[in-house]
Computed example of a mutant assay.
Amino acid sequence: MSESTVGIPFAPVILAGGSGTRFWPRSRRSRAKQVLALQGERTMIQDTLARLGPLAGCKDTWVITNHWLQKIISEQLPEIPQAHVLAEPAPRNTAPACALAAFLLEKTEPNTVLGIFPSDHVVSNDRRFVEVLQKGIDLAAAGENIIVLGVKPTRIETGYGYIEQGSRVRRDETPAGFAPIDIYRVRRFREKPDPVTAERFVAAGNFVWNAGIFLWSARTLANAVREHAPEMAPILETIAAAYGTPDFDRVFREEYGKCENISVDYAVLEPRSGKGESRSNIYCLPADFGWNDLGSWASLHEHLGEGDRDNVMDGETTGLFAIQSAGNYVFAPGKTVALLGVDGLVVVETDDALLITTRARSQDVSKLVRAIHESGREDLI
């Protein structure tokens, strides 16, 4: 087990499941957005592994994915041991995936700090990312502590969960050039709000978006699962006991689907925060390193464009002509695209499909995928 820069054993766990619906038709079940190169030459999961490099070695990194993506992820991340790329036998959300890694490592390295990282997020300041994560690793190793990262809201957003921050524990100075790191206790977690509630959260000033990045020791998470999800714990203990034996694939296949389909937020974080600030030992650090989850075509337009009215032509194209048109996103490799009198469109062409929607409705692309699935066109899924 490699150690972080302060000598603490650290194992990143990259969550790389998903069904490839948000960026349809570019994404499919067998090529979800984390294995696509949505910016630059590297895929999103390759970017994720690269930014973790200063904190942990590849041999200590784990990936939890599904059987549709396991092969391509192993090909894209050949540095990670094959035995550390685990394909869930059935989709069971983030709680079983996170807890599985905890129970596996608890057997031999219970004090190892686990870092949970989505595979499909964008970070623009890698140096600040490492600085904040190092501080979080240190805090997670100092006791039965759970560390979450929060993003300061920049708009009224109903698509993210929120973290309500309580009292500030301390402000840690950092090397010259970086802002201090404020550490807050977590008062409670709030699920995706309606617009009125989201506006109230943002106005309050002590709410941040939940970035989905968590830090805790293997023992801390395993014990939290035993306390708050007692039906799940023995299932994962059985799977962990079989790891490294010839029976592992069978046991994993037979047992994992018995776990509840639940997020780690619902299963562990919300019940633990219900104990109160002083007893929950949940702390929030700032995700102030240029975070974006690229959750839709609209967010990709925002990320790649210079402003809301910018026309974004993505991919290798032969040109874009736009007259009286603004705020559009177009992906049409090898094509010249002409826009006339249209605003806020999303146009995405692949070899076998063409998507035309608006940026305002791009969060609903999964509804299209569901309709295509129900029609029997599995070749498009």
Rank of each mutant, 00 (worst) to 15 (best):
S2I: 04
V6N: 11
I8G: 10
R31C: 07
E41T: 13
R42T: 03
M44H: 13
L49H: 09
G53H: 10
V63T: 05
N66W: 07
H67D: 12
Q76R: 14
L77G: 03
Q82D: 11
V85T: 06
L86T: 02
A87E: 06
C98G: 08
E106L: 12
T112G: 01
V122Q: 02
D126V: 04
V130Y: 06
K135A: 10
I137Y: 03
I147Y: 04
L149M: 15
G150A: 07
G166L: 02
E173D: 11
P175F: 09
A176G: 05
Y184A: 02
R185E: 13
V202I: 08
A203Q: 14
N210R: 05
L221S: 08
H228T: 14
H228D: 07
I239Y: 02
A241D: 12
S263A: 15
S263T: 14
Y266F: 11
Y266C: 02
E270W: 04
G276N: 13
N281Y: 11
G290C: 00
N292E: 11
S296D: 04
L300W: 07
H303D: 06
G305A: 05
R309N: 12
Q324H: 15
Q324I: 06
A332H: 10
L345H: 12
S362R: 12
S375M: 11
R377G: 00
R377N: 06
